[in-house]
Simulated scan of single mutants.
Amino acid sequence: MVKFRFPLLIALAVFVAGLALTAAFKDRHYMLLSLVLLAAALVPLFVRLERRPLESRELVLLAVLSAVAAVSRVPFAALPSVKPVSAIVILSAYVFGAEAGFIIGAVAALVSNIYFGQGPWTPWQMFSWGMIGLTAGWLRHTRWMRSRAGMLIFGFVWGFLFGWIMNVWYIISLPEAFSWQLAAAAYVSSFYFDLAHALSNVFFLAILAGGWTKVLERFRKKYGLLQQE
């Protein structure tokens, strides 16, 4: 994992720079920016491709997991913030690592917004779900993540962190000048949505963690998919 950390950090830095540009772009060029950030998310994959042959079935696996995470938003469209996306990204990163988790999270956000609608919020969602996968992958070998309670707490915490990151975009997009009162109001008003996301992460992780993880682990070991060098 260590040798892939530097490319991941480069991709993360590009993401942060791209998000900073949204303050200037606002409603303009957001789709182009999303595609640029998607390319940044794929940087670790390109590095792996250079260092060893990346099998087509590994690409298919990443595409399938990204599609599953994206499609999982649709049945819950009527329930704001209640989505299994974060849980799927966490479990995928837990099995296949930070590199895969980052890519799956970012791609899932972009693809799912084909249904939910693209907008200047898309790059922020790509970053947020990518960070969920990135941190889950980095922590996957810790005693914390290997315990069921630790994983559930991780999902709960990221339910709030996701919302807090998205609040930054919301505050930037407002026409009013920034003030701490405005920021406080934004975070207070999003509390129930963030709580719903956090609780849904716990719910879906509790349901999916056992069977989902075992299936993915079996695929990884049997076919040698996305093995860390």
Rank of each mutant, 00 (worst) to 15 (best):
F4Y: 15
F4C: 09
L8P: 03
I10Y: 01
V14P: 13
F15S: 08
F15I: 05
V16W: 00
L21E: 15
K26D: 06
K26S: 03
H29V: 10
M31N: 10
V36R: 01
A40I: 06
A41Y: 01
L42V: 06
V43L: 14
R48H: 05
R52K: 12
L54H: 05
R57M: 08
R57F: 09
L61V: 07
S66A: 15
S66F: 07
V68M: 10
A70W: 04
A77T: 08
A78T: 04
V85Q: 08
V85P: 10
S92F: 05
Y94K: 13
A98T: 13
L110A: 12
V111G: 11
G117H: 15
G119T: 05
T122N: 04
T122P: 01
T142Y: 06
T142N: 06
M145Y: 11
M151D: 03
M151G: 14
I153Q: 07
F154E: 04
F154Q: 06
F156R: 04
F156I: 01
V157E: 00
G159K: 08
L161P: 01
F162G: 00
M166N: 14
L174F: 08
P175T: 04
W180G: 03
A183H: 00
A183I: 00
A184T: 04
S189K: 13
S189G: 13
D194V: 03
L195S: 10
A196L: 11
G210T: 05
G211P: 01
L216A: 11
R218E: 05
K221N: 13
L226R: 10
